[in-house]
Nucleic acid binder design. Structure first.
Length: 806
DNA sequence: AGCTGTGGCAGGGAGG
DNA sequence: CCTCCCTGCCAC
């Protein structure tokens, strides 16, 4: 116990090393080249310790060392530990008005767990809600209390990364780990040092394969294990087969098997459940998540599978072997060498994807007190909170409790003209919400230490520094490292606003989140007014950006830029407007839905009503071509396009089933869907009904986040789609059974998007199969509808200065 | 235990 | 028919 009292009382800190004053870069040089920490003694009464794994500068040796760890939690009332043996813990009162006023520190994990249960029991008896604040991950506890982070003084290439991919033979349908006759046939391994190896079922039993894989991983001793969908598939499958064959999956640096626990991750509106897994001394990175995270920003990936992503990034070699998933078992029987090539290609592409996409995660790990693997699989809120908690512990300050409530305000969106307009300039406020937060003294009410503005300011400074470095970088490697760095700062900076409005964040403040959004709205209104005053015409605005037609005397890019600079100069201190693009023409349809024609003749689409990935491909194509023709004012061709599309539907003239099938994502588990339908909380939906049917027929279970493709069969347009939906894979071009009446109706629904651009009479002429008197486009005019912005009260933003809350 | 937000459009089912 | 409500997808 002496060690604990020393730590808590004598050194004046919970740790000896945590003395940095930089809230972002923290502990910069205390532990260079630390690649992993691993807690030991988790289920024992012995003093808790961590094993530290460091990599020497020559990149070869792993030196391990042990360090003490003092498990801790925060408690709102120390009386909740009354009756718990005082010899088993030390507590320290914390400063400030926040509710979690005591830091309780233990020597062993057993004491920590016993105390946790004790306090929860006491709280339940006393009716105290949320009595504890916990940091759930032991490695994270260590990093927080020591102020250390991983990878300090390391570059991404210093990591030793191993890629893993398994191929599975299936007797029928989707491979199932519980079916003894299904088995692993190949385990492809590679690393970022040019090594690769195939563990092959032709020379080994499945049990021997698993043993060989374990031995190879231990021999190569990587810091990171990477794979595409490695959590949900490869490791999940491997673990089940290890149980079956009684092979210990001893791949930890301590020789022990991984720890598995259910987790989930969110990418924009999509949430995915997966079995997370921690391996002692190593990190697991799923490139599937990296790809999805990338797509949240870019939104133009054709799919999230390894092959689609590798193609998208240009990583697929010219002689890459492709084998369809349901063809693997056949290829294995007939051409096993081909499958070997395929599996090697898989790990090669996985390595490239990881190299390309995990840079910013790597550099985030240098700042955030979290193991690399956790940084890669958790959302931004958890990272922000870890930074705050680290600083509050360092300053021995009480922690706040998440406030209940919700944010109510968001961005301002409006459209002032529907129809065709041009030329178009796009201007946006640079980093709108971060700028507002910095310049209007935004801070969560409970952040008495003012970590929020300090951290935000520091990260912004670091980002600008890195961005400047990108421009002046001498080599491509240096440039790419600095770019990954500035991106990691950007990720954190952009999460600060979301964190204010997040109901589960300890440092949330809904009023402040609303204030940020409200100031953003007013700044945008001010920009709209300024453009109007300068003689420009605003077409559409969304949150932080404005699409407008510049005044007639502003011609050419230089003049447009000068105009935007003038607008920017008139904005309040710290708010800058940037010039972000110019376009020949724009088709404005609805809020958040428009098309832009670039000066090199390409079309850019925005909004789900024009480009939704769930729409049938023939419809998307029809809309795309129709907009192109509309912008060219070629209305005769528009009519011809409508007629031709109609004819193809009538003649079942499809390239393939993907032309008219819909693809939807299962947002919920099938079980949840069934329960909700039974409870009357939702109605039946085609995608889930098919998922149920497919699971029954093939034994292939559908997971939350899976996508399913289907088309509509049956007769007539008056059908319920969930009962007439068929799996796309079941469509037979020799006997096409898709519902022609339904798809003609769908075509007319796509055509109806163009209703606002014509008079009723003209619209019916163009989008109708009847040509009784021949079609003549010449009298038809394209209609634009204007609803100019209302007058705006100037100087409103001034009143939004924060009132003192201290 | 692990989990960022609001605004907006379209489509489908259910029930009047 | 129409409206209401829910879900999915998307912009930012």
């Amino acid at each position: 116990m002496r060690m604990i009292s020393e730590t808590v009382s004598n050194t004046g800190s919970t740790t000896g090393t945590n003395t940095s004053s930089d809230v972002a870069l923290y502990g910069a040089d205390s532990t260079p080249r630390l690649v992993a920490v691993h807690p030991i003694g988790l289920d024992q009464s012995t003093p808790a310790r961590v094993v530290l794994y460091t990599r020497t500068a020559d990149g070869q040796r792993i030196e391990t060392d042990e360090a003490p760890l003092y498990p801790f939690f925060f408690v709102s009332d120390i009386e909740l530990l009354a009756g718990f043996p005082q010899a088993r813990y030390r507590s320290q009162p914390l400063a400030g008005p926040n509710p979690y006023r005591h830091l309780v520190v233990f020597q062993s994990w057993a004491a920590y767990r016993d105390a946790l249960r004790h306090a929860e029991r006491m709280a339940a008896q006393a009716g105290v809600a949320h009595p504890l604040y916990l940091v759930p991950n032991p490695s994270q506890q260590y990093l927080i209390q020591t102020g250390r982070t991983l990878f300090k003084a390391m570059g991404f290439d210093d990591l030793h990364r191993l890629q893993l991919d398994i191929e599975v033979y299936s007797s029928h349908g989707f491979p199932q780990a519980t079916r003894p006759e299904d088995e692993i046939i190949l385990i492809a391994l590679s690393d970022n040092r040019g090594w690769r190896h195939m563990v092959d079922r032709r020379t080994l039993t499945e049990q021997e394969m698993l043993l060989a894989m374990v031995a190879l991983i231990q021999e190569r001793d990587p810091d990171v294990i990477e794979g595409h969908n490695i959590f949900a598939f490869d490791f999940a499958y491997i673990m089940q087969r290890c149980v079956l064959h009684r092979v210990p999956l001893a791949i930890g640096r301590d020789g022990r098997p991984p720890r598995v626990f259910p987790s989930s991750i969110r990418f924009a509106e999509r949430a995915i459940d997966f079995p997370a897994l921690e391996i002692a001394g190593r990190h697991v990175v799923d490139t599937y998540f990296l790809v999805m995270a990338f797509d949240v920003i870019k939104r133009d990936l054709p799919g999230y599978g390894l092959k689609a992503a590798a193609k998208y990034f240009g990583f697929a070699g010219p002689d890459r072997t492709y084998i369809a998933g349901d063809d693997i078992s056949r290829v294995w029987r007939e051409q096993p060498d081909l499958l070997v090539e395929y599996a090697f290609d898989d790990v090669t592409e996985t390595e490239r994807l990881a190299r390309h996409l995990s840079g910013s995660t790597f550099y985030l790990s240098q700042m955030v007190p979290m193991p690399y693997g956790q940084v890669a699989r958790t959302g931004p809120a958890a990272k922000i909170e870890a930074l705050f908690v680290r600083e509050y512990i360092r300053q021995k300050h009480a922690l706040p409790r998440a406030m209940q409530g919700t944010q109510t305000m968001g961005g301002y969106t409006d459209v002032f003209l529907t129809g065709i307009a041009g030329p178009i300039v796009y201007a946006d406020v640079e980093s709108l919400y971060p700028s507002i937060m910095l310049n209007y003294d935004v801070r969560p009410r409970q952040d008495s230490l003012r970590v929020f503005p300090e951290l935000l300011r520091r990260l912004t400074g670091l980002r600008l520094e890195a961005k400047r470095g990108v421009k002046s970088a001498a080599t491509e490697e240096a440039r790419s490292e600095l770019d990954a760095r500035q991106n990691s700062y950007k990720i954190l900076i952009n999460s600060f606003y979301g964190n204010l409005g997040f109901s589960l964040a300890a440092f949330n403040d809904f009023d402040e989140a609303d204030r940020v959004a409200r100031i953003g709205q007013q700044l945008l209104r001010r920009i709209i007014a300024a453009i109007g005053a300068a003689g420009g015409k605003v077409i559409e605005v969304d949150t932080d950006g404005v699409l407008f037609v510049p005044p007639a005397d502003v011609q050419g890019e230089a003049a447009e830029r000068a105009l935007v600079d003038t607008l920017s100069a008139a904005m309040p201190e710290g708010i800058r407007i940037g010039y972000d693009g110019r376009y020949q023409k724009m088709l404005s349809y609805k809020k958040k839905n428009y098309a832009l024609l670039t000066y090199d003749g390409r079309l850019k689409f925005k909004g789900s009503s024009l480009v939704s990935r769930s729409s049938e491909r023939f419809g998307r194509r029809f809309v795309r071509e129709a907009i192109q023709l509309l912008l060219n004012e070629d209305l005769a061709a528009l009519h011809v396009l409508y007629l031709a599309t109609r004819e193809r539907i009538l003649a079942h003239e499809w390239e393939d089933v993907d032309s008219f099938s819909k693809t939807e994502t299962l947002k919920e588990t099938v079980d949840r869907y069934v329960a909700d339908v039974r409870a009357g909380k939702r109605t039946r939906a085609a995608a889930y009904e098919l998922a149920i049917r497919r699971a029954e027929e093939t034994g292939q279970p559908m997971r939350k986040g899976d996508r399913i493709s289907f088309y509509i069969a049956g007769i007539g347009s008056q059908i319920t789609s969930f009962s007439e939906a068929r799996l796309a894979s079941q469509w037979n071009p020799e006997a096409p059974d898709e519902n022609t009446a339904y798809y003609l109706k769908r075509l007319d629904e796509f055509a109806r998007k163009f209703e606002p651009f014509f008079s009723d009479h003209d619209f019916r002429l163009i989008f109708s199969p009847e040509d009784l008197f021949g079609f003549d486009a010449s009298p038809i005019r394209i209609v634009s509808t204007e609803t100019p912005p209302a007058a705006f009260e100037q100087d409103e933003t001034v009143t939004l200065r924060r009132e003192s809350i201290d």
